[in-house]
Design a binder for these strands. Structure first.
Length: 439
RNA sequence: CGGAGUGUAGCUCAGCCUGGUAGAGCACCGCCUUCGGGAGGCGGGGGCCGGUGGUUCGAAUCCACUCACUCCGACCA
C-alpha cells in the first residue's frame, strides 16, 4: 500500500487541482480576454455563447459577485433570489412578451404552458412587490438578485463578454414619487462607481438611452479597455474625480461623457484639451423607468394623502460574468492575465521549482502551510514539471504574487517574490517574504 | 437576420483541387538524458476525417442535404 500523498485532501496543490491550461490559442477565440480565459482554464464553451466555469474561473466569478453583493448591501439593498424560469403570464400583461421578440428563449412545460428563461426580472419583482406592499410607509425599498439570465443573441461573441447565458446582478427600486425615486437612482449611481472601483477598474458613467426597458433617466457604466466595443468620449475632469474617489452624483452627472453613437464633435461642450477618448466596455446600466410596470401590473400604494398611486421604479444591472472578461481586457500582458488583487482567484502562486528535491520541497511545503495558516489564499505548484512550464502557467493565470522556491535560492537562504503586475522581483528570506504576503 | 468561412487525434493544423485504406507539431503514457522562463532522444496509445444520403470497384477527398462552430454587418448586461 503506498502512503497517501500529502495532497490527497489538499485541493490547492496544483498537482491535485483542476486547471487545464492551453499553450496554444484556441481557434474559436478572437479577442484577448476570450483567448486568455480559455488558455488559463477559467471556462470552457458548452455551446455558442454558453460556458461552463472551471474552478479557477468560478473563484473569480464568485469574488466579483461578492463585491457586488457587499456594495449593494452597503447601499441599503436587500438580496433575494428569483427563478430563472418564469411564466409568460406577467410578460403578456406588461406587453413585453411580444416586444422582446426572438431574444427571449421561450419554452413550454408538460402541460403546454408558455414559460420563458428570464432575460430580466422587472415583471416578477413588480408582482412580488404589488402583492405585499400597500403603503408609502413601506417605501422606499430596493431589492436585487444575482441570477443567471438568458438572451438568445443572434450572434454571441467575445466569450463571456457577450454570451447568451450570463450572470447578472439586477436590482429594482420602489419609491412613492419621482423625487424619492431620483434619490434611489443616485444612491445606485454612487454604489456602482464604488463597486467597479473595488475591482480595480475606472468606470465612466455616461448618459444613455433607456432602450427597450423604457424610462427617461439612465446611465451606462463603461470601463476603459483598449479592446472595448465602442469608442467613448469624456471630460477628463470626470475621470479625475472618479479616480480621486469624489463620488458626488450631481457633480459627476453634470460632466460630459458619451459613447460614439451619441457623441457629436460639433455640439460637444468639452474643450478639446479636456476631451478624453478611449474604448469602453459596458459593465453596468441603471434606469429610472417610472410607472411603466406598476401601471399595467397594478402595483400601487396609498400615499400620505390617502390616494392610490403607482409605484415609481428603477432597475439596475451589472454584468457579473461579463466583468470577468472585461477585467481581463483591462488587465493583461503578453504572458497572460494580470488580476487585480480584489478579484484574483488566489493571492499567491507558490512555485516549487524542484519537486523531486527533498530540501526544496520541505521548504516549499513549509511556506505553503504558513501561508494557509495565515489565511492567505494560495495555489501551490508542486507539480513535477520543468521550471519554464511553471513560470509560464503562473504568468498565464495571473495571480498577483508569485513566490518561487528553488535549490539555487535556498542555498543563499532566499526565495524570489515576484509581483505579477509590472514584474518586479525581489530575493528575500522566507520570513521576509511571508511577512510581506501575510500583511 | 443578411453576407463570408471552417469542421481531420485533447490543442494548432497539413492532406481534399487531381478519389486508392490516416499525417505532423504540441499534449498524453513508459524509459533515458536533462532541470531557474513552455528542453532532447527512443518507444507507445489515441481518429466511424461533424452527420445523413448519393456517385464510384473504391470517398477525408466529388455531389446533395443537414448540424455545429467562427468571422463581418444590423441588435444587446
Amino acid at each position: 500500500m503506498p502512503a497517501p500523498s500529502p495532497g490527497r485532501r489538499d485541493p490547492m496543490r496544483l498537482s491535485r487541482y483542476f486547471l487545464p491550461t492551453l499553450k496554444e490559442n484556441p481557434a474559436e477565440a478572437q479577442i484577448v480576454s476570450h483567448r486568455l480565459m480559455l488558455r488559463a482554464g477559467l471556462v470552457r464553451q458548452a455551446s455558442a455563447g454558453i460556458y461552463s466555469w472551471l474552478p479557477l474561473g468560478f473563484r473569480v466569478l464568485k469574488r466579483i459577485e461578492q463585491i457586488v453583493r457587499e456594495e449593494m448591501d452597503a447601499a441599503g439593498c436587500h438580496e433575494v433570489l428569483m427563478p430563472t424560469i418564469q411564466s409568460a403570464d406577467l410578460w403578456i400583461k406588461s406587453g413585453r412578451y411580444n416586444d422582446y421578440g426572438k431574444e427571449m428563449l421561450r419554452i413550454r412545460d408538460r402541460h403546454d404552458r408558455e414559460m420563458l428563461y428570464g432575460p430580466t426580472n422587472e415583471e416578477l419583482i413588480t408582482e412580488i412587490f404589488r402583492s405585499e406592499v400597500r403603503s408609502y410607509r413601506q417605501l422606499p425599498r430596493n431589492l436585487y438578485h444575482i441570477q443567471w439570465k438568458f438572451r438568445d443573441e443572434v450572434r454571441p461573441r467575445f466569450g463571456v463578454m457577450r454570451g447568451r447565458e450570463f450572470l447578472m446582478k439586477d436590482g429594482y427600486s420602489f419609491d412613492v414619487d419621482f423625487e424619492s425615486a431620483r434619490k434611489s437612482y443616485d444612491a445606485m449611481f454612487v454604489a456602482y462607481l464604488k463597486t467597479f472601483r473595488r475591482m480595480g477598474l475606472t468606470p465612466i458613467p455616461m448618459r444613455a438611452d433607456a432602450g427597450p426597458i423604457g424610462g427617461d433617466l439612465s446611465h451606462e457604466f463603461q470601463i476603459v479597455a483598449e479592446t472595448g466595443e465602442s469608442a467613448v468620449f469624456y471630460d477628463t475632469d470626470l475621470v479625475e474625480l472618479i479616480e480621486q474617489g469624489e463620488l458626488d452624483a450631481d457633480r459627476l452627472k453634470s460632466l460630459y461623457a458619451a459613447t460614439d453613437d451619441k457623441h457629436d464633435p460639433k455640439t460637444c461642450p468639452v474643450p478639446p484639451e479636456r476631451l478624453g477618448t478611449a474604448r469602453g466596455i459596458e459593465v453596468g446600466h441603471i434606469f429610472y423607468f417610472g410607472t411603466k410596470y406598476a401601471e399595467p401590473l397594478g402595483a400601487t400604494v396609498t400615499d400620505a394623502d390617502g390616494n392610490q398611486v403607482p409605484i415609481h421604479g428603477g432597475s439596475y444591472g451589472i454584468g457579473v460574468s461579463r466583468l470577468v472578461g472585461a477585467i481581463i481586457e483591462a488587465g493583461h500582458d503578453d504572458a497572460g492575465i494580470v488580476w487585480p488583487e480584489s478579484v484574483a482567484p488566489f493571492k499567491v502562486g507558490l512555485i516549487n521549482l524542484k519537486a523531486d528535491d527533498p530540501a526544496t520541497t520541505a521548504a516549499a511545503d513549509g511556506i505553503y502551510d504558513r501561508l494557509r495558516g495565515s489565511g492567505v489564499p494560495v495555489l501551490y505548484d508542486d507539480r513535477d514539471e520543468r521550471a519554464g512550464a511553471k513560470f509560464a502557467d503562473m504568468d498565464l493565470i495571473g495571480l498577483p504574487w508569485q513566490l518561487t522556491v528553488g535549490p539555487r535560492g535556498l542555498k543563499g537562504g532566499v526565495v524570489e517574490l515576484k509581483r505579477r503586475a509590472g514584474g518586479e522581483r525581489n530575493e528575500l528570506s522566507i520570513d521576509a517574504a511571508l511577512a510581506r504576503l501575510c500583511g
